[in-house]
């Protein structure tokens, strides 16, 4: 396949970026999208040009590092995958592909396609945990029964990889799917109950502080989430917040 790429180039956070055209030839449909960019980068290095900077690590859809807006969609055209799992067979010979970084005030661009997602870490630091020290003396793991439904639903929420696609795709740049997923995981488990009220209040406050927008129930986040995190988690977070504020 031969493709035309229009890629966002930006030297640093303070620079004004722009889209630059690149041509790639001999693209095999079995290549992953990132391998296609590897080929382009090797080409650029050979021509003494600067390679394109992008985040990536595990290349199997679980670390959450890769983050690209491809043809106007977070992680590209396919559903339920990250960029690193996107393969070139999803494109046709002669296609033009637009590649941009996540766009959100709370995710400033570091370089080219790389953004700073440390706001997510700070939200977790505000309350995304259960306060239990390591001791070797906590109660036996089977001492508290947890229904299969609760464990499975908590697991579904916990599969969030923190990539930020939900924020990137939301017209309000809201992080509610991300925060809702973490709040839900703990809200569904008995271990999470003790600190439930404080947790949701602190995490939501930090989320607002970071400059993420609000949720207007468009549902784009759920559609673009590589792990299929459900909107229900946002509803659960709102219920938890309401409960916390009433008590």
């Amino acid at each position: 396949m031969k493709l035309t790429l229009k890629i966002w180039r930006q030297k640093s956070a303070n620079d004004k970026g722009n889209l630059v055209d690149y041509k790639v030839n001999d693209v095999s449909p079995d290549m992953s999208f990132l391998e296609m960019l590897d080929v382009l980068n090797q080409d650029l290095i050979d021509k003494n040009e600067e390679p394109i900077a992008f985040d990536h690590d595990c290349r199997e859809g679980i670390c959450g590092m890769c983050s690209m807006y491809i043809n106007g969609r977070a992680h590209g055209p396919d559903r339920s995958i990250t960029v690193c799992q996107l393969h070139m067979r999803s494109f046709k010979d002669g296609d033009t592909i637009y590649i941009e970084p996540w766009r959100a005030k709370a995710f400033p661009v570091i370089k080219d396609l790389i953004v700073d997602r440390s706001a997510f870490d700070r939200i977790q630091q505000a309350g995304g945990f259960i306060s239990v020290n390591t001791s070797g003396n906590t109660q036996d793991a089977n001492a508290t029964l947890i229904s299969k439904y609760a464990a499975d639903t908590a697991m579904d929420a916990a599969t969030c990889i923190g990539c930020g696609a939900c924020v990137a795709t939301c017209k309000n740049s809201s992080a509610m799917l991300f925060v809702g997923a973490k709040v839900s995981q703990y809200a569904l488990l008995p271990q999470g109950q003790i600190e439930a009220a404080e947790r949701v209040r602190n995490m939501v406050a930090q989320m607002d502080l970071e400059g993420f927008g609000n949720c207007t129930n468009t549902g784009a986040c759920e559609v673009e989430c590589p792990k299929g995190i459900s909107l229900e988690n946002i509803a659960r977070m709102n219920r938890e917040l309401m409960k916390a504020n009433i008590n």
Partner: peptide, 9 residues
């Protein structure tokens, strides 16, 4: 035991 206490599902 520790992981369950942390909320690992």
């Amino acid at each position: 035991d520790q992981c369950v206490a942390q909320g690992v599902p």
